[in-house]
Amino acid sequence: MKIINCPLNGPRNSSEFVHGGELRQMPDPNNCTDKEWADYVFYSDNQIGVITEWWLHAPSGYWFIAERHTGSDEILRTYDPSEIFTHRVDFAEKVESGQPEEIKA
């Protein structure tokens, strides 16, 4: 992988991008157990196959999502996060209300 197709800026050199980690569901920090939180922050499947992950196009400050094969390094698809995140996630509000958060991935 040398060129990454940025959904906003088109094909750009991979050196312009920063890896943001695998997309995963965050447990509610106010109500989950320590084990669930540890699992979320430290553990990972780390298998060989297609994963869904965050990338940042650094010069334009734009975050997007890629599906990439961790064995062949091939990027199958990149897309804007709005495809998955259909409504706003408000962290501040969540802390006050203690409501479980809704991230659908």
């Binding site: 540890a38 699992d39 430290f42 553990y43 990972s44 499947d45 780390n46 298998q47 060989i48 961790t70």
Partner: peptide, 16 residues
């Protein structure tokens, strides 16, 4: 490590 551990049903805090 993560690939072999998964065969035993173990998930690890490791990234390759």
């Amino acid at each position: 490590s993560s690939v072999v551990a998964a065969m035993a049903g173990i998930r690890m805090p490791i990234t390759t």
